[in-house]
Design a protein around this nucleic acid. Sequence first.
DNA 1: TTGTAAGCGTTATCAT
DNA 2: ATGATAACGCTTACAA
Lengths: 353, 353
Amino acid sequence: MPRGRRKDPEGEGAQRTARPVGLREVAALASVSTATVSRAMNAPETVSPELRRRIQMVIRETGWVPSGAARALATRRTFTVGTVFPSLAQGLFANALDGLQDELNARSYTLLVAHSRYSFEEERRQAIKLVERGVDGLVLVGRQRPPELVRFLEKQNVPYVCTFVFEPDGRVPCIGPDSYRALYELTEYLIGLGHRRFGLIAQSIEGNDRAQARWNGVHAALAARGIAVLPQHALQGHWSITEGRRLFRQLVAGYPRPTVVMGGNPFLAVGAMLEALAMGIRVPDEMSIVGYDDIEIMQEMAIPITTMRGPSDEVGREAARVILRMIAGETDVASVELPSKMLIRASTAPPPR
Amino acid sequence: MPRGRRKDPEGEGAQRTARPVGLREVAALASVSTATVSRAMNAPETVSPELRRRIQMVIRETGWVPSGAARALATRRTFTVGTVFPSLAQGLFANALDGLQDELNARSYTLLVAHSRYSFEEERRQAIKLVERGVDGLVLVGRQRPPELVRFLEKQNVPYVCTFVFEPDGRVPCIGPDSYRALYELTEYLIGLGHRRFGLIAQSIEGNDRAQARWNGVHAALAARGIAVLPQHALQGHWSITEGRRLFRQLVAGYPRPTVVMGGNPFLAVGAMLEALAMGIRVPDEMSIVGYDDIEIMQEMAIPITTMRGPSDEVGREAARVILRMIAGETDVASVELPSKMLIRASTAPPPR
DNA sequence: TTGTAAGCGTTATCAT
DNA sequence: ATGATAACGCTTACAA
């Protein structure tokens, strides 16, 4: 005769650990059924004002807090959205996270976060963990990921969106700037100024389709004009101001010098600018410098830096809206392209002579 | 004769929406009881290798993912920690979040985030929401908060820690730098250099006990030497580089000028420095400038800025460790002070003449 | 409008 | 070592 967990509610056994109040206690105290309490919470209009009042009182008095786990189990919804970002500390993602949280909060969703450290394998692990936790939807970064993960998400029927990219192929909504086009345009502007010798300093594009798309945009624009980049004029490294200085130094050490240097992110651009100033290179007369994306310091420097500003908190906000629509069951959710904006500042001019 | 939800598992009704595989299906396919499958997951050593193998196979084949909600309901644990930070986008908090996530992830906990936008009321709401979601513990910022919230957390028995502060009073663990002492020391250093006329630019300290503690430290150090700050030399505003410039301009417009300007955060300090350079004020000969906390640009500027570096990702890491210990039921968890470090750079020197 | 009770998918107790 | 089953705390179909 198997018995399972002992029942004994208010039986002889003097319970030492007073069970926390639950829906049942509230119902009992308000002299209604548990169903009514539940309705009073989730569909107040279906409960008579009188009962509603009584129930509210009891809830207040007892300080009852409904159990999310129980609710999730019963409804199969957690009202929770998960994100796997490469990093949480980088300005770009931190801003997006902030926007995401803002928008989710407004619809009383909660945000679960994880980071992948730019590793696909880690992204996969984290995403799976989030699905186990029961997230209703997922916000990921980039369009590229292991097919294994994609299959998993499809099988589990977890909706997700890709952010910071815009490569609509109709399968999964993308929310972000079209980095390719943004850099294509920025490059065209520079070509228009007369530049022909380009120097490129970028963070490593390995496992980073956003960075990849940016460089593709640059090269495409150059190729369209028959311009080639000298091998020693295309450098990759880490991302930081210090790294920007280092790469810039390396770039201008040889001959011929580029007439314009493009930084793949704001830090590299700031580093390049600082190093140029330190080396006594006159910007923009001797050399132009541009960046990608915008941080406050770029426009506050002695010579403000021309750049293409991407939307980052707006990516978060829009991603929230889109994923919520998918969760709500909408089937025709489209990708949304968020515009980048070219900010022409003092760091760019026609090449010397 | 009430019936509740219809049961009919594999009854006549051809279920169109195939129920997702669950523990039961796995158990059936492996020809074991659900209890055994559960054990194979949570205490493998208590299950015979043979069954373990069989179960693993079935799990792999079916792609079963355990339901976090059900598990949470049964165990009353979610393996989830929540945070309510004033902002997610600010470098300080973004770093802490990153460290927190890192450390939690290593112990397979997941992080739920919310932000309060520096509002106590919002902090309260968010914290309650997180508790409803079932977080096992909470990481908050600062020592000060509505007693209502404190009571709530105590009543619900949710452990929490306070970060970015160190004011151990034995009740709740604090993890952070002693900002008061940090700025006390920085100020003493400046006094030691000979400075007597201090200019202070800070972000608003309203509802921000960390910023408050910093200024208290400055004023205490000054008071200890009988130094007073002129009213027009203590300015408050927003936090940003632009704001730093604005406040600095305002500060030096009058007479007498301070011989040293202290910025309450890295952005204000950078702004002050940029404005000083733009105005042709020679730093540090004519005027010294210091900041609080450290961001990369501070040491990369033409004149690197002296500052007191606080630990920010370490705050996250340590907070994770401490809250996990509390969740584990440890009762004697102490506060931990994380050291600040004075970084003397080129922006400070004795006052002119 | 309100009540009854089954069911959500696990874990854990007890018996074997 | 394994199995049977109650319990976790809600929601909801159906009946009244």
